[in-house]
């Protein structure tokens, strides 16, 4: 075989092996850089502790970083209030997105036929929504929640904006989870004279729960990674929020602000980025585990 290789063949072969090598190289460079500089922020400098206590010191620094308040515009200190704000934004986002997402997905998969006009319109409009750039969601959130509804820059308006953004993703994955429930179960339920209510709440939803949870976790990951939609909805304030009506800075905005607007903020930006990536990696691992454990397929197939 090899003897008949022409020059074109050889060039093609080289290309096919170089492209993945290049991509993997860049990926490893990015992740490696993040890990090294991120961990560097937690490496203790000079200290009097020795032996065993020297080893626990990075751990102490990590805890201090995760719970402390940012000082000097974030150059030093921790990210405690920012984690709280991020958590609150996610909570607002999910508590709005879950009812609408679950309800819409249930309607589309259980209550209307595929050719139903209403169902088709909703599906189509969700497809369009899924393609809207995140910065446009930011504009929308600013106009509607911050100004029209008078919520100003607040965790509430940020969370609501994110809810609109993750809704299409949530609906699509929930719908897939519902469709994965074996149709014979529905037929059996109908044959036994179950009401729709009973079919949905006692047959379909319990079986679809793992798939629905995978979708939720994916949605949380997407919301956590988002920055552009939050800059002018949830705002920049890095103090501890007292309620959801306060402005609060999300972790991703913190990274942006430190690296762009604060000279000498890079080290803490890297530390925050490491925290963000670690959380996202955990989420990814959790979805994969859930998906392979309960759904017998890989989460990546969504």
């Amino acid at each position: 075989m090899a003897r008949f290789k022409t020059r074109t063949d050889r060039v093609l072969d080289i290309c096919v092996w170089t492209a993945p090598a290049l991509v993997s190289g860049l990926f490893l460079w990015l992740v490696g850089d993040l890990a090294v500089r991120g961990c560097g922020a937690f490496w203790p400098g000079e200290s009097e502790a020795s032996g065993f206590f020297r080893l626990t010191e990075p751990l102490e620094l990590v805890i201090k970083f995760l719970t402390g308040a940012p000082e000097r515009a974030g150059r030093s200190g921790g990210i405690g209030p920012i984690l709280v704000s991020t958590g609150l934004i996610l909570m607002v986002c999910m508590s709005m997105a879950i009812p609408f997402g679950l309800g819409t997905a249930l309607l589309l998969s259980e209550f209307v036929a595929p050719q139903n006009r209403f169902g088709r319109i909703v599906r189509r409009s969700l497809d369009v929504l899924a393609g809207v750039p995140s910065i446009v969601f930011g504009l929308f959130g600013n106009a509607v929640f911050s100004q029209f509804l008078g919520l100003r820059f607040s965790i509430l308006s940020g969370g609501l904006t994110l809810a609109c953004m993750v809704l299409p993703l949530l609906i699509r994955s929930t719908e897939e989870a519902l469709n994965a429930v074996c149709p014979t179960q529905r037929h059996a339920a109908t044959a036994l004279g179950f009401s729709r209510w009973a079919t949905v709440f006692q047959i379909i939803l319990p079986q679809a729960t793992p798939g629905v949870v995978v979708g939720l976790v994916l949605g949380i990951g997407r919301a956590l990674a988002e920055t552009a939609a939050l800059i002018f909805t949830s705002g920049y304030v890095d103090r501890m929020p007292r309620s959801v009506f306060d402005s609060g800075r999300s972790l991703s905005i913190h990274i942006y602000d430190l690296s762009m607007n604060v000279a000498g903020g890079n080290q803490n930006a890297y530390a925050s980025a490491l925290v963000l990536i670690t959380v996202l990696a955990l989420i990814n691992a959790a979805t994969n585990w859930l998906a392979t454990r309960f759904l017998q397929r890989e989460a990546g197939n969504f």
């Binding site: 609408f100 819409t104 589309l108 209550f111 409009s125």
Partner: peptide, 21 residues
């Protein structure tokens, strides 16, 4: 009825986005 309501709101978001922008 509830599900139709929820779905209608989800479907309207994109219209709202366009309208407000």
């Amino acid at each position: 009825l509830t599900l139709h309501g929820l779905a209608a709101v989800s479907g309207l978001i994109v219209v709202l986005v366009l309208a407000f922008v």
